[in-house]
Design a protein around this nucleic acid. Sequence first.
RNA 1: GGCCCCAUCGUCUAGGGGACCAGGACGCGGCCCUCUCAAGGCCGAAACGGGGGUUCGAAUCCCCCUGGGGCCA
Length: 504
Amino acid sequence: MTSGSAPTGTPRPLVRTRFAPSPTGYLHIGGAWTAFFNWLHTRHQGGVFILRIEDTDRSRSTQAYEAALLEDFRWLGITWDEGPDVGGPVGPYRQTERAHLYAEYAQALRDRDAAYPCYCTPEELDAERRQADAAHRPHRYSGRCRDLSPVQRAAFEAQGRRPSLRLRVTSLSEPIVIHDIIRGPVVFEPEHLDDYIIVRSDGSPLYNFANVVDDHLMNVTVVIRASEHLSNTPKQFVMYQALGWAPPAVAHLPVILGADRKKLSKRHGDTAVREYRDRGFLPEAILNFFALMAWHPESEREVYALDELIGGFRLEAVGRASPIFDLDKLTWLNGVYMRRLIEQDQERVVDLCAQILQREGLLAGPPAGEQRRYLSRVIEVVGDRLKVGRDIVAYGDFFFREVEHDPAASVRYLTPAAAPLLAAYADALAALDPFDAKTIEAALRRVCAEAGVDARALIHPARVALTGKTTGPGLFELTELLGRERGLRRLRRAAEEAAKSPTA
RNA sequence: GGCCCCAUCGUCUAGGGGACCAGGACGCGGCCCUCUCAAGGCCGAAACGGGGGUUCGAAUCCCCCUGGGGCCA
């Protein structure tokens, strides 16, 4: 920034957004997507993105999950400017460390009589609800504690009752209109609101209260969150009024659905970002894929660099309909990025595959030296079959362990007719010099020509012999990499097996 | 059950009154390439949920219905 430049006119208010996860599990695809749209909008506007930890549910929140959350965001490349680890001017950034603030504003509301203590027991409230149900009326709190006298309150206290705190919702006849950036005006009739609890009898604040206090104190200017919170918005709107604060702008994103059109959950398979990481997905592919749900950048392309996404992002243009999570498309996109990476930054692919191979028990530890070069060659040979990291196992496991013949492949190709061909081929390879893809191919074709058979009659059995499968990398390349010794052993073993195989 | 949201190919989407007998992508099918599988190339099937309006004209605007979803209970 140039120090000499004079500011002109009113300074543009800085955009401040936040993502506020609960550390009760691993980062969810839906949460990551929501955070990403927050992040895109903020980076587009040159604003500040805040990470706030909503850990008020102490029974389910853990430090381990919080650490995992931060780790997953870092892995994705979603960075925050203020948060529990980096701090910031409006901290702390963990709700459990902000208890004094909720207490302070709860007291302020009480002092102003905008909130009142409610002594109803769960049983009494339950009875109210059942009555409403029986009468087929929507249940709202009766408000029986709304106008208790000091004497009545003292009497309840004397009984040992601990009050919760309820917001006195001034029942205006005016509808509440939320101007949602994505959805436009959304109207809520006030009679559906009741005096809701903002602090439990144990003193812990409820979501709609803590959230409002935090967003306001953290100067959040736009709340971008999933539309499952849309019905909470009028409650919060009333809260802002009670506190005398101006509410932030809101934008409600649609909810990501599974193939059955239900909210994406564990039933649909992997929903944690971490699981995709473990399967060998690339963060840049995931973000690119995220950008294609409920939004689409400019042109008729699917692949976008991150700075293009930031440059072109428009919150108002985000779709209102819920997208279905399409794993096929993510996998395809990951393949696009993987192929590019093999060309441009193979070391990253090596690291990715190494981790997966270790987890599968196919590598003892992080590969170094000769082993690393070998893995690198395996990746080249597997080539564009590698769409996700895990494919290294599906296509290249035989490079790291003994072959196991797939039964169906064995029945089909390791036949008595193939046995002499495999044996002859093994003999030919034994004498080969040099031992490379080119000479290997020539040797195979020679064996077939001498036997008067099509090359396929040997190629397919040889692949099964060497890899155990009917699909995979080119036979000659993989044979070269496997090496003469292992190649001969596998071919001869397969030749024996084929000779003993019953004729079809 | 109450409140709210949503609706273009199977899926992600473009489109915002005439440019649309609706474009792109994934997936699917066929062909080419080829030692298989991928990748790549070419071709193809595939959608405006229904009904009323408004308008000279509606995928686009309005209403109703239907369907789906979310929240609360």
